[in-house]
Write a protein that binds this DNA or RNA. Sequence first.
DNA 1: CGTCATCATTACAACGATGTAATCTGTGAG
DNA 2: CTCACAGATTACATCGTTGTAATGATGACG
Lengths: 338, 338
Amino acid sequence: MRATVKDVAARAGVSPKTVSNVVNGLVPVSERTRSKVEAALAELDYVPNLSARGLRNGRSGVIGLALPDLSTPYSAEVAHHIVEAAHDQGWSVQIEETGFDPQREHDLLSKARTNLIDGLILNPVVLDESAIRVGGTLPPVVLLGDVVQHLADRVWVDSLAAAKDMTLALARNGRRRIAVVGADQGRGSATSLLRSRGYREALSEMGIPHDPRLEIGCDYWTPRGSAEALRAFLADNELPDAFFCFTDSLAIGALSVLADAGHRVPEDVVVAGFDDIEDGQFAVPALTTVSFDKKALAVNALRLLTERMGSPKRAVVDVSLPYRIVERGSTGPGGSRG
Amino acid sequence: MRATVKDVAARAGVSPKTVSNVVNGLVPVSERTRSKVEAALAELDYVPNLSARGLRNGRSGVIGLALPDLSTPYSAEVAHHIVEAAHDQGWSVQIEETGFDPQREHDLLSKARTNLIDGLILNPVVLDESAIRVGGTLPPVVLLGDVVQHLADRVWVDSLAAAKDMTLALARNGRRRIAVVGADQGRGSATSLLRSRGYREALSEMGIPHDPRLEIGCDYWTPRGSAEALRAFLADNELPDAFFCFTDSLAIGALSVLADAGHRVPEDVVVAGFDDIEDGQFAVPALTTVSFDKKALAVNALRLLTERMGSPKRAVVDVSLPYRIVERGSTGPGGSRG
DNA sequence: CGTCATCATTACAACGATGTAATCTGTGAG
DNA sequence: CTCACAGATTACATCGTTGTAATGATGACG
């Protein structure tokens, strides 16, 4: 049986509350009493019961992190930074996977683990934010990424602008037949929608005709999903000048298919990604991509969450992170790793 | 304010305990009462307070998962499978990163005793299991991976045998100067130690002299760490016949450096990895590796944890997962993706 | 020497849910 | 009509911690 404050109190010859005072250090305790209690704490190997503390204090010290799929490198990197940042602030992180299922996003918000978690960082995938329109009692929530509505605090990168910039960069590089991988398939992925839109805006700005056949959809945003989609595409179409993949994971799948098919990158076709995941830097060739500071994403999300807990009714805050196009070998000879 | 059983009870005109009975469904409740209560539950949007429940029941429904670094694809895939499997059984997962720090591994174990988590799945990196030397009240723990001592339940893959098999496979492939990447540097990484040992056993079995210079250590087990180590190695040494990298992440870094240096894989040198991560299948060329079922790893770990909770004093259980060498393009022309 | 201010310590209640044991309701047998 | 009995429902206590308010101890000062 674990020791409780009561046991420690008995052993130290004081009251439970005094033990609590020593443990928490918020209330002054005399030197003599403190040392007695500390001895008892050590002897009994006391560990506070966080359930009880959470019940009493109304706060558990745990935040939730909901991501579509933890196994994708992007999610993993984000999770890593969030866990690190949370740890620095004394929070623990409970992970949930939404599996691209709007229902699960919704469940997490309304029912789910409320009162075991003090707040939620949610990376949604669907445009329809019905999930977030929640009656009254929304727990403190911070959204990550491409979400349209301004119903909760959010940290994001301007997908549309970045996709547009990347497309423009490819076009200025002399590419005309630019295909995208991960195009919107009407399933409401905000990311897909916004990046598609940026792509089209860039085309129109450059006076490049828009060819719908060059918008390649993927059922799964993984290297495998991309590879399958691309193989099918290549079977029916001529090789375009460029593939702009909406994530680095998609791009890695693309590089693999292109290599297998004997197409040289960047000589025959160039490839670009989005997210700047670690493995993209070490792809062959290294991946040109849209880069942004994922640690800043995490730190800002946590900051917003903390602030929101402090002042539940302040106006919604929106933090937009800067991004930049990083050119590496997959779009030309000049690129460097790192 | 969130509704409590009390509020629901008042609204339904019954006692709090009856509400609890309806919610939990363990005690029979008459049809009439049940529907009244269910209506009240819905109207008030009742969500049970898990802290209170955890306090009362002594179980929180949360398990901890401790990994060295969540951002590595291997950890991410494992975490994904664990979260999925846990979700299926109604558990939530709290993630902790140990950052390769034995102290944090130790802290986690004591934190596990705070009753906020009912059990812990721990992927340790250090050989010295002082962390696990357990006073009396260790929570249910399952270890993942290469750990030597048998102090807790464990799910693992025989690293030594697998590394040996892989080395033998490379040797039978005609390779003599086989380098390893991720070699033990005396820092006590169990994984590194065991795989190094398997490598040496294979060499000696094949009558290949052991050249210590071919054991390349890495400060970080990431593509970047591997790339840095390999660049340094290549500056001072002739190209070996093969690089056996102790993880796929290391191998991805290796492929990248080799490509940059103009060495062709597999023509000039072959490369093999370990873990069979998704990105390895889509590396260029696709990565030969030691493959095992990571979902089975997760499912077994969870099963052991559940069983251990049920019978705290049963003998330690050790589950060894089968592995196989998957040959892909990085070690020869015959390989296929998938 | 008594009184009051100051500070440390204590008793008690409460957070919300639920197991236990007691109470209540309704049924059917005698 | 009474009594026993099964089943549904309830009152109460409890899990471990900590805020509140009351108590106790110490010392200063008139």
